[in-house]
Simulated assay, not measured.
Amino acid sequence: MGVSLWIQLGVVVAILAALWVLADAGTYRGRALRAGRRLGLVDPAPPRPTGPPVEQIAADVERIRRCVRSAPPGMPVAQRRGWLQAYDDVLVEACRALGLEQALESLPPGSLRELERERVERLLVRAGLLPGRDAER
């Protein structure tokens, strides 16, 4: 066999190997990144967000807030309490998503919880998640 035949065979093998690697490039890239992170050569992966997107949380807060504030007179107490609990739950979720401190989960229903709810609302207004009181009018 001549030298040119070996060169041609080498080129064909190289092309086939390149095509094989390209077909699974994502897999090889992922393996290389994981190995690089374990060895400290590559920055660690950014944390993955948990829970729903902030935009969805903001929409939920605003929707439930409107329901609570526009509750008709004579509404059953159980329904009002349910709405308030749902509102508190979504406020807690918003605070977690934005990294804000809140104590709504630990307070029993009553005046302290209402004060904490108002404080959390103000925090969310400052954070830009809720419109201010002037925007509501």
Rank of each mutant, 00 (worst) to 15 (best):
G2P: 12
G2H: 07
V3F: 10
L5A: 11
W6I: 04
W6Q: 15
I7V: 15
L9S: 08
V12G: 05
V13R: 11
V13G: 15
I15D: 04
I15H: 01
L16N: 05
L16R: 11
A17V: 14
A18N: 11
L19A: 11
W20H: 15
A25T: 05
A25P: 02
G26F: 00
G26C: 02
G26E: 05
T27R: 14
T27Q: 09
T27N: 04
Y28V: 00
Y28F: 03
Y28H: 10
R29C: 05
R29G: 04
G30W: 07
R31Q: 11
R31C: 02
A32D: 08
L33R: 10
R34Q: 15
A35P: 06
G36V: 12
R38S: 13
R38L: 13
R38M: 12
L39R: 12
L41E: 14
V42E: 15
D43M: 02
A45I: 13
P46M: 02
P46W: 06
P47H: 07
G51T: 02
P53N: 03
E55R: 10
Q56P: 01
I57W: 00
I57G: 03
I57A: 01
D60C: 07
E62S: 15
E62V: 14
E62P: 00
E62K: 14
R63P: 06
I64Q: 00
I64A: 00
R65M: 13
R66A: 10
C67R: 12
V68S: 06
R69H: 05
R69M: 11
S70V: 03
A71V: 15
P72C: 01
P73G: 04
M75S: 05
P76E: 12
V77E: 09
A78Y: 04
A78Q: 12
A78H: 09
Q79W: 00
R81V: 05
R81C: 07
G82R: 01
G82M: 05
G82N: 06
L84I: 04
L84S: 08
Q85H: 09
Y87I: 05
D89T: 08
D89W: 02
V90L: 10
L91G: 00
L91F: 12
E93D: 13
E93A: 15
E93C: 00
A94K: 03
A97F: 00
G99Y: 06
L100F: 08
L100N: 02
L100W: 00
L100V: 08
E101V: 02
A103P: 01
L104S: 09
L104Q: 03
S106A: 12
S106C: 01
P109W: 11
R113E: 04
R113T: 05
R113D: 04
L115H: 14
E116M: 10
E118F: 12
E118N: 13
R119M: 10
R119K: 14
V120K: 01
E121H: 10
E121D: 10
E121L: 14
R122H: 12
R122G: 09
L123D: 05
L124D: 01
V125Q: 13
A127D: 08
L129K: 01
L129W: 09
P131G: 12
P131F: 11
G132C: 09
G132Q: 11
R133G: 07
R133I: 14
A135D: 13
R137F: 06
R137I: 06
